[in-house]
């Protein structure tokens, strides 16, 4: 290897490895785009090619997209999306409102945190799905029990993020505010909220994704409804095109929602930097 390097340099060139390395560095951006495009094309290509060899269990990419178009245009997908979307937004709103409130309480009121935090963690670790029968016996199968199940699944990132953020406010910040005679309102506006915001946002970003899982779980297990019901419908009639189409649709929505969550987080952090300095 070393000998080869030397002779290559003697010839005024570089070793192959060095040239490859240089190419990778100079064209990094193009290679990155090429990798993304190639991976998606490969997925579609393999899907299309294999699609014909498993009979009804796996249909080609083009058939799946055709099916998706049918389901969207005249099928049950769009009405189901409204049902699920409403549930999702209510769950997410509760996650944020209750999560932020409880998180701040846990962080700022020692007795509340000592009394309730162990139970919050046990509830967090317990698979929420196993509580569904109990919830349905107590509260039924309607909208609000669904919201409860969804919130139980997705609230914890916000709650834990806010509690951790509010706990880590440096003592000095509070002292300085006290020295300058901040009243309670100013203390919250100038110190606590700007400090906790990034922690809250990173929790909310995770809850944005989890609330979708919460919505689906609530719809799957408490009398199928919305998108989950459409998915199950395809499974019962063993229509793989149907199930694949709905799964692709859900994953497109999930990627979009996570993207929006990341954008909002970035925006909030930039706002905070310009506001607080």
């Amino acid at each position: 290897m070393a000998l080869h390097d030397q002779s290559a340099r003697a010839r005024g060139g570089e070793s192959l490895a060095a040239r490859v390395d240089r190419f990778r560095t100079i064209n990094a951006w193009w290679i990155q785009i090429a990798c993304y495009v190639l991976s998606i094309l490969l997925l579609i290509g393999v899907w299309q090619a294999l699609g014909h060899s498993f009979g009804v269990l796996f249909v080609p990419f083009t058939d799946t997209m055709g099916r998706l178009w049918e389901l969207l245009e005249s099928g049950p997908l769009l009405p189901a999306l409204w049902v699920s979307g409403e549930l999702y937004l209510v769950i997410l709103a509760f996650d944020i409102i209750i999560g932020v409130t409880l998180g701040l309480l846990f962080a700022r009121v020692a007795l509340v945190s000592a009394a309730f935090e162990p139970y919050a963690y046990i509830l967090y670790a317990t698979p929420t799905i196993s509580l569904v029968p109990f919830v349905s016996v107590l509260l039924g199968f309607e909208f609000w029990p669904r919201v409860l199940v969804g919130v139980l699944i997705s609230i914890f990132p916000v709650l834990i993020g806010v509690a951790e953020g509010a706990r880590s406010i440096p003592r000095q910040h509070l002292d300085v505010a006290a020295i300058f005679g901040s009243n309670e309102r100013q203390l919250w506006r100038d110190v606590i909220i700007p400090y906790v915001l990034p922690f809250a946002m990173s929790g909310i970003k995770q809850s944005v994704a989890l609330a979708m899982a919460g919505t689906l779980v609530a719809e799957f297990f408490l009398n199928p409804d919305g998108i989950a019901a459409v998915l199950l419908q395809g499974t019962t009639v063993v229509d793989s095109g149907w199930v694949l189409a709905v799964t692709v649709f859900i994953s497109a929505i999930a990627v979009a929602l996570v993207g929006v969550g990341e954008l909002v987080e970035r925006y909030v952090i930039r706002w905070r930097r310009s506001a607080v300095g």
Binding site: A209, L210, M212, A213, L216, V217, F220, L231, L232, G234, T235, S240, V243, L244, T247, I250, S251, A254, V255, L257, V258
Partner: peptide, 10 residues
């Protein structure tokens, strides 16, 4: 990003 429960039917 996808809730994995959505993969269960397929």
């Amino acid at each position: 990003a996808l809730p994995l429960i959505a993969l269960v039917p397929i």
